[in-house]
Write a protein that binds this DNA or RNA. Structure first.
Lengths: 153, 153
DNA sequence: TGTGAAATGCGTCTGTTTCTCATTTTCGCA
DNA sequence: TGCGAAAATGAGAAACAGACGCATTTCACA
């Protein structure tokens, strides 16, 4: 059994919630893929294995995963809401063109955040840093026509 | 005329867009309040002055304000989307109990973010840091019963 | 001041998320 | 191991934010 599964079971037990086959399946699929998924996308993957599961259950399970600290949702610029497993990183670079998501591995960032919180008498539980921009690859293609909308005819 | 208004006018001109009375009013109300507003809330404030303005126009103007870099939207835990004037801060402490939102005034944070982006060949446009936790006041009330959900009967 | 491009309001539409409720499942306890 | 209360489920309806289409109005530039 994975650590994630254990964490989820502990959360359920602590809140007198039940472990159902649906929740197990949703959790397994969710953590196995490292992608950011929309509820709809996860739902599609889940129903490939168990076609009986409803979209409502996916949403409901997401809620619990968030409560348990196992999932986090990210709002993209395009308006979609995506969910991701939240073990490990909370800091990312997100490319606004290709959607690529690169974890930031800078321990000083978290230190600074802790420090900022402390200065305000704040107790930090978790933090989330998202840097939006363009990745190296998209930068090359994107730059030539970046200024177009500022030009007059 | 405020700097914000000037920025908006420049943006409009550069994109061959027009400055209408509706856009002026929406901008003025938006920047004058330092609160985070939902589209609906801003709409209500706007219609108090000019009852003819439609919600569509508020949404459309938000889009332009975002484009112009004058507004930013923030997704709260409760699911609402709020817009805020985006001069200055992109980093906040948010208290999960009382909802208080405290701007972080740490210039090193942004430097580190820029640096992290650079290391990956990334070009940073904007960043957003949110630190969730408990503020000083809520900490005092909250601590006594913090562990309750982990206890068995 | 005339003209064309752009913006508006209103109503409608779409896609996402939550709710309701009758039925089914889980799990602690005897 | 089987009972019963509490909780979860699926299906569909409802709520919601936000976008869209179009006929009409407004703006800005010459």
């Amino acid at each position: 059994m994975s650590g994630t599964t254990r964490t989820f079971q502990e959360y359920l037990k602590a809140n007198r919630l039940k472990l159902t086959s649906q929740r197990k399946l949703i959790l397994d699929i969710f953590v196995s893929g490292s992608q950011l998924l929309t509820a709809e996308e996860l739902f599609r993957q889940v129903t490939e294995i168990d076609p009986g599961i409803s979209l409502s259950t996916v949403y409901r399970t997401f809620k619990h995963l968030q409560q348990a600290g196992l999932a986090r949702c990210v709002h993209y610029g395009d308006g979609t809401t995506r969910y991701e497993p939240s073990e490990g990183h909370t800091s990312y670079l997100i490319c606004e063109k290709c959607g690529r998501k690169i974890p930031i591995l800078n321990p000083y960032l978290e230190c600074l955040q802790q420090e900022s919180a402390r200065q305000e008498g704040f107790r930090m539980f978790r933090s989330q840093t998202t840097i939006f921009g363009l990745c190296h690859e998209c930068l090359k293609e994107h730059l030539p026509n970046q200024k177009q909308s500022n030009r007059h005819h």
